[in-house]
């Protein structure tokens, strides 16, 4: 059976990640691309051989098996719920929603409608972390202390939606959920409490009254410690605006450390410094998105159980939300 798929939101993440993955996945047909910006919808549709829409009702009237929601975070809940109510399975980008409350509503709607709600926690499909997890199990290491860093210099102008806490949740949520989910995944346990501190470093963050540098110390059950550092304010030049990840796992019976600075690159030296031509930072993303989508489509086809559930996504968001509360109060907050 071939799945009929529709896309809502043909902006950044669609163009960077999903578009090329969708071209490679068989058994799936993208039939419609919707965006409030007609030009973006048209371009996306053209590339995927689909029809373009700017009207959501017309789009949802189509006979679609699944809808991919790839829009800014604050619209996730409304769009996902409308798609679910129209009888479509939903794959939504992370974070699941802007707030836990919205996320819960989405999950309830999916349950009521008997449809899948799947959230794009792409780190769970990234071969670096999958292999690390496998090694931990194979070599009998028990992680007790994990530090995960995801940092970048956000290249967008100050009026872009990322900088607006009410639309993106800020860096604590936007990048934060990647790390909070990663920690739960690696510890295979639940968080107990969080202490967090936020800073506004870049002009864009200060102008918008949001944090662009955020530290979470998360206590997990069994005396395990997770340290999450997320930042949009690392002062790399904008052309290096890719993510830098660092992982340090200290455990019983071993330690595992990953820093992109230890791994192979092909750099070029010219009069002006250039981006690396090969870098593990850049190399795993496309494959991860493809693996994620393949997996989600198989789940929808009933061939697979979800490796990461909407509930997982909700807890990842809940930790980030509590962390923001902690940073606001300056106190430890129970999760």
């Amino acid at each position: 059976m071939e799945l009929k798929v529709g896309i809502i939101g043909c902006g950044n993440i669609f163009n960077l990640a999903h578009k090329s993955a969708l071209k490679r996945i068989e058994g799936v047909k993208v039939v419609a691309c919707m965006d409030i910006d007609g030009e973006r919808a048209r371009k996306g549709a053209e590339e995927l051989g689909a029809r373009a829409f700017t009207n959501l009702d017309e789009f949802l009237d189509l006979d679609l098996d699944a809808v991919l929601v790839l829009t800014p975070t604050y619209t996730h809940s409304e769009l996902a719920i409308r798609a679910l109510k129209a009888g479509k399975h939903v794959i939504v980008e992370k974070p699941i929603a802007l707030t836990v409350e919205e996320g819960e509503k989405m999950i309830r709607t999916a349950e009521r409608e008997g449809l899948h709600l799947l959230v794009g926690h792409v780190r769970r499909f990234d071969k670096r972390w999958l292999q690390m997890k496998e090694i931990i199990e194979k070599r009998n290491i028990l992680p007790m202390h994990i530090r995960k860093t995801e940092v970048q210099n956000l290249p967008f102008p100050r009026d872009y939606w990322y900088w607006d806490e009410k639309r993106s949740g800020g860096v604590a949520v936007d990048l934060g959920v990647h790390v909070t989910d990663f920690l739960r995944w690696f510890f295979e346990g639940e968080p107990v409490s969080v202490y967090a501190v936020g800073k506004s470093i870049k002009e864009e963050a200060r102008a918008n009254g949001t944090w662009d540098h955020f530290i979470m110390m998360i206590a997990f059950e069994g005396g395990k410690t997770g340290i999450a550092e997320v930042s949009w304010a690392y002062p790399y030049p904008a052309r290096y605006g890719v993510f830098y990840h660092h992982v340090d796992i200290i455990g019983r019976n071993g330690r595992i450390r990953y820093t992109p600075l230890d791994t192979p690159v092909v750099g070029v030296a010219k009069a002006n410094f250039e981006m690396p031509r090969f870098s593990p930072l850049l190399s795993t993303f496309p494959e991860a998105f493809e693996m994620e989508l393949r997996h989600f489509f198989n789940v929808i086809k009933g061939k697979d159980e979800p490796r990461v559930t909407a509930q997982d996504a909700l807890i990842a968001l809940k930790i980030a939300e509590r962390a923001k509360e902690s940073a606001m109060k300056g106190e430890v907050v129970e999760v």
């Binding site: 007790m144 202390h145 530090r147 202490y195 501190v197 800073k199 540098h213 530290i215 110390m217 206590a219 005396g223 395990k224 410690t225 340290i227 200290i250 455990g251 019983r252 430890v332």
Partner: peptide, 28 residues
């Protein structure tokens, strides 16, 4: 704020800890 404990080796004393320090003039 710190989390310090006997996490790795099972010694009678702590073996690792991490602290978040907020400095007066704003450095984190």
């Amino acid at each position: 704020y710190a989390d310090i404990g006997a996490k790795i080796y099972g010694f009678p004393v702590d073996d690792i800890g991490t602290a978040v320090l907020e400095f007066r003039k704003g450095v984190l």
